[in-house]
Amino acid sequence: MAILSLENVSFSYDKHSNAVKDVSLSVEKGEYVAIIGHNGSGKSTLAKLFNGLVLPDKGSVIVDGFSTLNKKEVFEIRKRVGVVFQNPDNQLVASIVEDDVAFGPENLGIKREEIGQRIEFALSAVGMEKFRHSSPTRLSGGQKQRIAIAGVLALKPQILVLDESTAMLDPQGRKEVLEVIKKLNQDNGVTVITITHYMDEVVDADKVYVINDGKIALCGTPQEIFNQKEVIKGFGLELPLCAEIRDKLARQGVILPDGILTKERLAEELCALKRKS
């Protein structure tokens, strides 16, 4: 069953050009969806349409049966859709970490004891328990981003939208946050929509949408998308570095199978190649 669907949605910030043009898509409950596209392609606008931060000029956005166009239903939608944006400095509201994480659940009117539990859950999910009583202003960029993610996790959203939320994290932090998100997806059935420039974050998705010039240009499994190398490059995107290396090797006469998207697979194929020769 589709938990989120867009039907012929168009949106523009000004009269001159549409940021999103006639987009229709539907996301199933429990799906892990990746959205990619170059800067300015309209990806972030989509994220804002998902929870009613911006409203469609044409068409409709339906979340779990509620429409963002119906003012009375926006609250229900925000309960279900949690969005983490790119820059943490724009998302932190309180002067103490735990207050910041509690802000969302407090707004939903959740009981005090449960808020406590949710803070604990959310902070441990992002590995920031130690900073519970710190001031966000004293944290580094990456640490602040983890707090921003915790603030959304504390809402226990059914749909988690990540708009380049891992851009400021270090490799370890990114890996940890991605593991948390995957776990939420697999164990708790949270629907995940990740908007990202990291091609290796796309590899694990069930479905990938490529956005170009405000429209859906491609849709498919990661494998299907990355098989269309030239098309992808034409949209200002790139293959994961692994696939890039595979292609460069092929040009030098070292042929590996097609469709290598992860570093583990590439290493495996390289080692196998040597054994054969």
Partner: peptide
């Protein structure tokens, strides 16, 4: 300081 964070692959290159 983290100059390419948030840029798309082509922008980064």
């Amino acid at each position: 300081d983290e100059p390419v964070a948030g840029l798309d692959p082509q922008g980064k290159r």
